[in-house]
Write a protein that binds this DNA or RNA. Sequence first.
DNA 1: CAGCCACGTTGATCTGGATCAAGGTTGTGG
DNA 2: CCACAACCTTGATCCAGATCAACGTGGCTG
Lengths: 258, 258
Amino acid sequence: MMLDVYKGAEMALHEALKPHQNCANCPIHYRAICAQCEPDELRLLEEIKYYRSFEAGQTVIWAGDRMDFVASVVTGVATLTKTMEDGRTQMVGLMLPSDFVGRPGRDTTPYNVTAVTDLLMCCFRKKQFEAMMIRTPHIAHRLLAMTLDELDAAREWMLLLGRKTAREKIASLLAIIARRDADLAAPAHNKQRSFELPLTRAAMADYLGLTLETVSRQITALRQDGVIVLQGLRHVVVPDIDRLHGEAGTDEFTGMQV
Amino acid sequence: MMLDVYKGAEMALHEALKPHQNCANCPIHYRAICAQCEPDELRLLEEIKYYRSFEAGQTVIWAGDRMDFVASVVTGVATLTKTMEDGRTQMVGLMLPSDFVGRPGRDTTPYNVTAVTDLLMCCFRKKQFEAMMIRTPHIAHRLLAMTLDELDAAREWMLLLGRKTAREKIASLLAIIARRDADLAAPAHNKQRSFELPLTRAAMADYLGLTLETVSRQITALRQDGVIVLQGLRHVVVPDIDRLHGEAGTDEFTGMQV
DNA sequence: CAGCCACGTTGATCTGGATCAAGGTTGTGG
DNA sequence: CCACAACCTTGATCCAGATCAACGTGGCTG
């Protein structure tokens, strides 16, 4: 069974190689690590990049394992999680298209990286990427900016984990996904939003520091109160995005990124 | 009263200027933003730096305010906090000597920065620092490394906030402070540690996402169980650091930094 | 199409930490 | 040396969310 999954991934990989061979067509170029590269720099990156794809549920890498590549999420969703010995799990990163995974200058990851949907990543060997970073300051600068954004997002998330109620947590998560989705898709400038939830209830619970039962109950409550409308289990319609923000407890999204 | 505080700070400033005039004698040089600078780069930094000091309890800057400098903590402790409209607050950064405050490329802070002890900071005008960063890659590289470390620390903290019990939270905080203290002071390589708590019970509560009553009770419990010995309210002796780590729920301190 | 499995909902009960409410301790300035 | 303020502790009670348990439901496989 493990083999089947692997074979599936390999096949997907070969298919994936075609559409994105060229960085010029890349759907995430404008906000990824390569966003500020000059054409000649981009050509260099293009030479050393390679694609990997993963099926929903597959683990990309385990905490503590050697990680000899860095990568951008091209399509799909990955999570970073930390686990305690007794199994308690906390998600510490939700990586959406254009987000950067991995750390130059370190050999092992401190997180589990998991594909929660089918996932396509644009990878670079760490060694080569590090060399690249020294030669091309645009990449180093972009990585710094992205890391600072992620730090801000992590701190917003800390406020959520430490001080928000279960209902506020759910509303905040929905607001974050709605916003990231809107950023990538056509920017609808009315108050209604709608999107696909990329996470299971259990994954949401790991994100929010809750149990999956509480997640389920609070989603039901938000639905019954008319804050959201569910079409099936995963498709969410938000009739009034401002109302959702109100429920999230942070009107102003100071620095919120991921 | 506000004026007295201000005057006190100004006086402390003038005194402070003397001992650290020279970067060569700086107690934090080896792990601060300037750690990798060449002598000539350091000379440039030395020309544009200036010191500011704050008394315990003073606010360095409010969330949302314009922040036209960046700074290293030289001595003392500062906190970054986020506050919700109804007053709930969460600490999102505990800045100890050598830590870097502020973000190049952004005009306002999303956090309150507060001095919790008397505080001395080594500051640079943001404009000048940004120019410096472009010219001297050592600074940009060091800032990237420090930011990545902080991101790892923030994620460890997220696990704490989302999944640890009150007792584990307290033990984790004590372990972090013990470790940072040991790094800066003489590295005692036996199992005993002792240090001064730089935070009030209320500040610890803000760090840990608890109430101050719970903090107080759990500290009492750890004392009664012999995990720690208190000498006065603030001086903590840890007879067996491994036992403390056990109580913290994370034997291995993967990537823990701040 | 039957049966299974992963995912989700709902109900009943329990409990860790919050909340409300007194006191105690320490340090500081008059 | 007293008075006051800032911290800290302890006790009683409450409740949001965890835990334990049962029951949908939809999609895939044989």
